[in-house]
């Protein structure tokens, strides 16, 4: 029983990180209908921002940890907006394929720039939050895992509030449904798209830090695999669907952990991508994918 709960905790904390990254994929897909493959490298930059900020800030404190988190989120938001402006905006109105290829190009650029700036060797990530293991009857929850749960929950509620209750969130939903109609009511599509990139990238930045807290070795290529997994999570939940991305992330984290617990750790990645193939075959809209009906 304890064993099962422990796996559940591990799975959910991994899944929460996937969910944070998946939200960025899904939001960008929602407004621009393409997969921003550079997103996984924004996640990496988030981890490095946390690394450098963490060295300057008092370590193992709440204040220092939260400040590093906020700093990394701001840095990633800025990076996301910059990427959109320089790489994707000039291609607005062109075929999605051109944008997709550009996204892969930006991804490679960030990875190589990362290796140039940060070096290719892995670095050990500092402990940003106070270290403590909470034990309940054999069940162990580390403070890093707890940080994942709390921060993810707060960020998801904040995101939900922004998307559902604010003017800009409403504009995002409107734009995602019909950009032409949005511009006809006075929405500057460029501005809303920038905001979407800022939000999604900030979440990836937070994901980068939370990932590094739990797997404290970071390098410029670290984004690739979690990024791809998060992409699977976004598709699993239904690409373009925000609650779907959250659910898909958690589910994928759980699946992976179960596979590992059953002794198949060699196959965890294969299973994750197997899930992608399965979902595309059986339910291409994703688990929570919306069925679009339009009255004519």
């Amino acid at each position: 029983m304890t064993e099962l709960l422990q796996q559940l905790v591990n799975g959910l904390s991994l899944g929460a990180i996937y969910a944070l990254i998946a939200l960025g994929y899904t939001m960008v897909y929602g407004v621009l209908r393409f997969i921003n493959f550079a997103h996984s490298d924004v996640f990496m930059v988030g981890a490095f921002a946390g690394y450098y900020l963490g060295r300057e800030l008092p370590s193992e404190t709440f204040g220092g940890g939260l400040l590093a988190l906020a700093g990394a989120m701001v840095a990633c938001a800025a990076l996301g907006v910059l990427i959109e402006k320089l790489a994707y905006r000039p291609l607005r109105g062109r075929s999605t394929l051109s944008v997709l290829i550009t996204a892969i190009g930006v991804s490679l650029l960030l990875q190589n720039l990362g290796q140039r700036l940060f070096g290719a060797n892995p670095r050990s990530f500092p402990q940003l939050f106070p270290r403590h293991d909470f034990r309940f009857d054999g069940l162990v929850i580390s403070s890093a895992q707890l940080a994942v749960f709390v921060i993810t929950l707060v960020l998801m509620f904040a995101l939900r509030w922004i998307v559902m209750k604010t003017r800009i969130g409403m504009a995002m939903r409107a734009l995602s449904f019909n950009p032409v109609a949005a511009s006809l009511v006075g929405v500057s599509n460029d501005f809303v798209i920038s905001c979407t990139f800022a939000l999604g990238s900030a979440l990836a930045g937070a994901g980068g830090i939370l990932y590094a807290l739990n797997y404290p070795s970071i390098d410029p290529l670290m984004g690739t695999l979690p990024g791809l997994k998060a992409f699977v999570a976004a598709v699993l939940g239904g690409i373009g669907n925000i609650p779907g991305a959250a659910a898909g992330g958690l589910l994928l984290g759980l699946i992976e952990t179960v596979v590992v617990a059953l002794g198949g750790s060699t196959y965890r990645d294969a299973v994750a991508f197997g899930v992608l193939i399965l979902i595309l075959l059986l339910r291409p809209g994703g688990l929570l994918g919306r069925v679009q009906t339009e009255k004519v």
Binding site: M170, V180, A181, K295
Partner: peptide, 13 residues
């Protein structure tokens, strides 16, 4: 203001 052809209401809102 322009009421476009096909109405283009935001069906998800």
């Amino acid at each position: 203001a322009h009421v476009p052809e096909g109405r283009m209401v935001f069906a998800n809102l």
